[in-house]
């Protein structure tokens, strides 16, 4: 775990994820605030700006949208070589021959990656909440709806981490792992909508988070369980792959 933390820190993965997941928490509320002035300067008048919802709620929602699109991309790109890198560079050979279990290596990677993504999602949501309140005034009586949304996004990104780690264990090229993961993340939602199976996928968490409702809907618990189920399936597949693969280059 300590080694994984050091790796995230020294390889600038932590910094990239911080920028990728937190910067929009400051940028999106600010852009929303400046949008009327921008539109006016472009000669579009104030009519269009009047149609926009200029509120703390909208600022947080805008951040969550960016978090899904940009955050997923940043998360996938920064984690794409986490397992294949160990194989390609042979860095796990010495620890493995000292009796370190490949399962422990996987759980350490998932815990640190998932933990960092969860923390930044939660922190980003909190920043968007506070900054949105400062710019537009308070919409919410408490932090709870924002924290719930941030937490659900955090869980979703932990699922993303398990997906990328699985892809990285099956595909030796990091770019191939990234491509496969992004295809899964961005092509599956429309496909799931068409097949009407969205409720069986972790994307249901994002819909729930977007409501910013103070009350948990009946689908939240189901979404959380389904996400953990998917993570368990991916982890099982990854561990099976790691146990059976040739570990020498």
């Amino acid at each position: 775990m300590k080694k994984e933390w050091l790796e995230a820190l020294r390889s600038y993965r932590l910094l990239v994820l911080a920028i990728g997941l937190l910067s929009f928490a400051l940028l999106n509320p600010l852009i929303l605030k400046l949008m009327p002035a921008i539109l006016e300067s472009q000669g579009m008048g104030t009519d269009l700006a009047n149609l926009m919802d200029m509120s703390q709620r909208e600022a947080i929602r805008s951040y969550l949208d960016s978090l899904y699109q940009i955050g997923s991309l940043v998360a996938v790109l920064s984690l794409m070589g986490v397992i294949s890198g160990e194989f390609n560079k042979g860095t796990w050979v010495l620890p493995l021959t000292f009796g370190v279990n490949v399962k422990d290596i996987y759980w350490a990677k998932l815990s640190i990656s998932g933990g960092i993504l969860f923390f930044f999602s939660l922190t980003g949501s909190l920043i968007a909440h506070l900054y949105g309140a400062a710019l537009f005034g308070k919409d919410f009586a408490s932090l709870y709806p924002t924290l719930k949304a941030g937490g659900l996004y955090g869980l979703y990104f932990s699922f993303v981490a398990s997906l990328v780690l699985m892809a990285s264990s099956f595909l030796k090229k990091p770019s191939a792992a990234a491509f496969a993961s992004l295809a899964f993340l961005f092509l599956l939602p429309p496909l799931a909508g068409w097949l009407d199976i969205t409720k069986w996928l972790p994307f249901v968490l994002l819909s729930e988070a977007g409501t910013l409702s103070p009350l948990p809907s009946k689908t939240v618990l189901q979404g959380i369980l389904i996400t953990f189920g998917w993570m368990a399936v991916f982890s099982f597949a990854t561990l099976g792959r790691l146990e059976t693969m040739e570990k020498a280059r």
Binding site: K3, L6, E7, R10, S11, K89, G90, T91, W92, V93, L94, T97, F98, G99, N101, A248, R249
Partner: peptide, 24 residues
């Protein structure tokens, strides 16, 4: 698996975590 402390293996081109110092 072999019990810990049985074997030490040095590959021809050992892979290290380049971001660490030798001491780390």
């Amino acid at each position: 698996p072999l019990p810990k402390g049985t074997l030490g293996y040095l590959p021809e081109d050992p892979g290290f975590y380049g971001y660490m110092t030798g001491m780390e």
